[in-house]
Computed example of a mutant assay.
Amino acid sequence: MSVTVQKLVRTAPGSDRQLLKSVSLDVPTGHFVALVGPSGAGKTTLLRAIAGLDVCDSGTLLLDGQKVETMQDRARKIGFVFQNYALFPHMTVARNISFGLDVQPRGSRLSRQDRAARVQELLDLMQLPDMGAAYPARLSGGQRQRVALARALASGPGVLLLDEPFGALDPIVRRTIRSWLRSLHDRLGLTTILVTHDQEEALEVADRIVVMQQGLIVQDAAPDILDQSPETAFVMEFMGEAITFRGTLNNGQFVPDEGGVLPFPVAAHLESGPIDAMIRPFEIGIVSAGNAEKMLSPVSVVSHGARNGYRHYLARLTDRTISVSAPDWGNDSINFAEAGVLDISRARLFKNGLRVV
């Protein structure tokens, strides 16, 4: 089932502050989209608007090209999983899962036998085959999350909405659950929209990542494109650690403001003037200071350990210390005796927060 959002506007109750500013989004059938951004960006507001839990001032929602306006229109089409699971503590796991089926209108309600079969089917799918009689208090965080997912899927929705579903889980369980969720999404052919503040989580599970800031979508792209070609400085910083070097464009060359950093050529058509170069720590090179760089202030480099497949270093510039990383294999570690200047030629350039190259 496809989801199309057209120019949604929502204002905060009791104020004139816009939580969504004419937001449009298209999610084709079977796609997995992640909404990311800082707190207050509008991620959950957009998700709740799609679910029909919040009323917008203007805009349109289409499911499979059909306009929907009421909760009743969406009830059997959208499943919603909250961050805190929202399970009923006085009900068994089986009753929690069947709740949506039990309250359906009598004319469309499944028989008791069919509802029980559906619940067991979902328990098997969630890898909780023998937990139907248990109460939520007996379950681990990961198991509760699976029960919440089962309840959202009980009515057979075409769209699954997830609001920070892994926030309360420890890192190991979190990684396991999100991998399993992606597999479940593919197996059931769902259209899934996930809200998360964790960019690594979004990169791992989503087909597309939608970055939001102050009620706007600032970039919508596949994970690899978003990582390699951020359109704004905000996106560059949000998608991973980034280091900024102030400088000037001068006759087709980026000239850093601080010593110990090599100038590098850029596109000749760019207008001269102040500009920012932003780069990931693992993209920075440290090279020997040759005769051509004798006027530069050499940097001091110290080892900062190894983790996650990289060796990490601290490079001390005149007024600050920055992180530099190198792949942790082979024998190509940095030679501290010869290290002298930073090579940032792989940086992206931004002017007034917008990418220029």
Results as ranks from 00 to 15, higher is better:
Arg246Ser: 14
Leu181Ile: 08
Val27Ala: 06
Gly240Asn: 12
Glu204Thr: 10
Thr45Phe: 08
Pro105Leu: 02
Gly290Val: 05
Ala154Gln: 09
Val159Gln: 09
Arg348Ser: 14
Pro298Gln: 09
Ile225Ala: 11
Met239His: 05
Gln214Leu: 06
Gln145Ala: 11
Ser303Cys: 09
Met278Gln: 12
Asp102Tyr: 02
Val173Thr: 15
Ser229Val: 04
Val211Asn: 02
Phe238Lys: 04
Ser58Val: 03
Phe336Ser: 11
Phe234Lys: 10
Ile286Gly: 01
Val36Phe: 06
Met212Leu: 15
Pro136Thr: 05
Leu62Pro: 10
Ile344Tyr: 12
Ser288Ile: 00
Gln113Val: 04
Leu101Asn: 00
Gly260His: 02
Met295Ala: 15
Leu19Asp: 07
Ile78Lys: 02
Glu338Gln: 14
Gly100Asp: 00
Phe82Trp: 04
Arg17Met: 11
Gly309Phe: 13
Gly285Val: 04
Arg182Val: 05
Pro171Phe: 04
Leu169Phe: 07
Asp186Asn: 06
Leu20Gln: 05
Leu190Ile: 01
Ala86Met: 01
Leu139Glu: 06
Gly40Tyr: 11
Phe254Tyr: 15
Gly309Trp: 12
Gln104Gly: 01
Asp186Trp: 05
Ser108Met: 02
Val255Tyr: 10
Gly247Pro: 15
Ile286Asp: 03
Ala150Arg: 00
His312Met: 13
Ser58His: 01
Glu271Trp: 01
Val205Ala: 06
Asp102Phe: 02
Ser300His: 13
Asp16Ala: 14
Arg138Asp: 12
Asn308Phe: 14
Val205Asp: 11
Leu53Met: 09
Ala34Gly: 08
Arg17Pro: 02
Glu204Asp: 13
Glu121Leu: 01
Ala117Asp: 04
Gly259Tyr: 02
Ala202Pro: 07
Ala134Thr: 07
Ser15His: 11
Ala168Thr: 08
Val324Pro: 14
Ala12Arg: 14
Gly156Val: 10
Ala337Lys: 13
Val55Glu: 15
Gly142Thr: 08
Thr4Trp: 06
Leu160Tyr: 07
Glu200Gln: 12
Arg106Met: 01
Thr318Cys: 11
Ala347Gln: 14
Tyr85Gln: 00
Leu249Asn: 06
Arg316Leu: 12
Ala86Tyr: 01
Leu270Gly: 00
Val218Leu: 09
Pro265Cys: 02
Ile344Lys: 08
Arg175Gln: 14
Lys43Thr: 04
Thr176Pro: 00
Asn308Thr: 10
Met278Asp: 05
Leu20Trp: 09
Asp163Leu: 05
Gly37Gln: 04
Asn308Ser: 14
Leu188Trp: 11
Asn96Arg: 03
Asn96Glu: 02
Asp130Trp: 03
Ile193Ser: 01
His269Gly: 03
Gly132Thr: 07
Asn84Arg: 06
Asn250Tyr: 09
Asp16Pro: 07
Lys43Ala: 07
Ala168Pro: 05
Arg151Gln: 13
Ala75Gly: 00
Arg106Cys: 03
Val211Cys: 01
Leu19Met: 15
Glu237Arg: 15
Glu164Trp: 12
Tyr85Phe: 03
Phe254Glu: 10
Met239Trp: 05
Ser297Cys: 08
Asp73Lys: 02
Leu35Val: 08
Arg10Val: 13
Arg144Leu: 10
Gln83Arg: 03
Asp163Glu: 08
Val27Leu: 06
Phe336Ile: 15
Leu194Tyr: 10
Ser345Asn: 14
Val33Thr: 08
Ala339Arg: 13
His304Ile: 08
Leu87Met: 00
Gln104Asp: 02
Thr11Pro: 14
